[in-house]
Amino acid sequence: MPAFSHRISQALTQRDEQGLTRKLLAHQGVHQGKLLHHGQAYVHFSGNDYLGLASSAELVQAWQQGLTLWGAGSGASPMVTGFSSIHQELIRELCDWLGYEDGVLFNSGFSANQATLFALLEATDTLVQDKLNHASLMEAGMLSQATMKRFKHNDVAHLDRLLSDNLCNPLVVTEGVFSMDGDKAPLQSIATVCQNKAWWMVDDAHGIGVHGDMGAGSCALAGVKPDILVVTFGKAFGLSGAAVLTRRDVADYLAQFARHHVYSTAMPPAQAHALLHATHMIQTQQWRRDRLATLQQVYHDTFHRLPGYVATDTPIKPFLIGESECALRLATRLRERGYWLTAIRPPTVPQGMARLRITLTADHSPQDIVGLGRALEQLLEEGV
C-alpha cells in the first residue's frame, strides 16, 4: 500500500541523510583473528569471540560430532519433541557450574531477555533498569505491561532511591558488562540494595567465560548470585543461543509461559552438544583468559596516550571519536591498512559519542594490537 511505501522510503532517506545508514557486508569467513573479505585478510577487531572459540578446531570437531550423533535439527518446539537429553545435559552442566537449580534454553540472547520479561511482568509490577541496558531489555520493558523506570548508568544511589519509593513488585535488571562502553556493573552494591526489596536479574552476555574463576562470569567475580542469570552463547562460547538460569519453579514457569520458548523450534541438539563442549573448554582452558589479560595490558601500553582512549578491564575497548562521519572515515582508512573495525554511531550510542568499538580476542597477537595503535595514531595526526 502507498502508506507503507512512503513510510519506508522516508525512513531510509532520513537515515541516509543523517549518515546513519548501515549495510550488510558479506565476508568469506573469520579464522584466528582474521576476517576474509573479497580475498583480503584483515585483522579483525569487531567481533565478540573473546576466547577465540568460534574458529577453534576442537569446538568445530565437537559440533561435527554432534551432527553425527543427533542430526541437523531438533524438528520441533521444546514442549513437543524438540527437547533432547543433550539439551538437558547442557542445562545441568550450566547449573552445576554457575550455582543454579534449573534453566531454560533459548535461540538467542535477545529472545531470552524478552521472553523472561514478557513472561514475568504484569501490570502491577515495576521494572527498574540500568539506563544503558541492551536494546532487547529496553524494548521488552517498553512493550511489557509493567511500569518501567530507569536508573542512571551504574548509579547505585539512584537505584536505591527508586527502590525506596514503595515500588510495586520491583524487578531490577542490569548487565554484567556493558557492550558499548566495556565497563562492569557494581554488582555487589546492587545486590545489597536489592536485598529484601526487589528481585534482580543480570544479563552477563559479555562477562560469562571472560571473568571470574573458571570463567564463571561477572557475578562469580563479584561474589553475588542474582535471582535470574542470563548466559549468552554468542560471545565467549563462540556459538549462539542463550540460557536463563534461576530457581526450579521459576524455570518451570518460564518453560510453561515464555512464548519465545513454547512456540519456537528448539535449538538443534548438535548445537547443544557443541555448547556442552564449549562449557568444558571455558572452565578448563585458563590460558585463553590469561592471554586476554596480556593483550589488554598491551592495548593499554599502546593506546593510553591517544585522545579517545578509554580504560576498561574487559576485552571491550571503546575508542571515542565524537562525530559519526569522523568515526566512519577512520574505520574506512583503517580498513585500507588491513584492520577491520566497526564505527558505532547513534542511535546505538548517544549523539556526539560515536566511537570505534575495538574488541580483543585470544586469537590476537601483541603485534596485531601494536600495529593497530600505530595506524590509528598516524591517522589522528593526519587529521582524518
Rank of each mutant, 00 (worst) to 15 (best):
K225E: 14
T232W: 00
D204T: 10
H206C: 12
G234D: 15
D203S: 14
V230N: 05
A220Q: 13
D213N: 09
G217L: 00
A222V: 06
G238Q: 12
D227T: 02
G234H: 10
A222F: 06
A236D: 07
K225P: 11
G207H: 05
M214W: 05
L239I: 11
G207V: 07
A216Y: 11
G207L: 04
S218D: 09
D204G: 00
V230D: 01
P226Y: 12
L221F: 11
F233G: 08
H206W: 12
I208N: 05
L229A: 14
V231H: 04
K235W: 00
V230H: 05
C219Q: 05
A205L: 05
L239V: 10
K235P: 00
L229N: 03
G238N: 10
V210I: 13
A216M: 06
G215M: 03
P226V: 05
G217M: 05
A220S: 14
S218K: 07
G215F: 06
G223T: 04
I208R: 02
G212C: 08
G217E: 06
G215E: 09
H206G: 03
I228K: 03
S240P: 00
D204V: 06
A216G: 01
L239F: 09
F233L: 12
L229V: 08
V230R: 10
I228L: 10
V224N: 05
A216D: 14
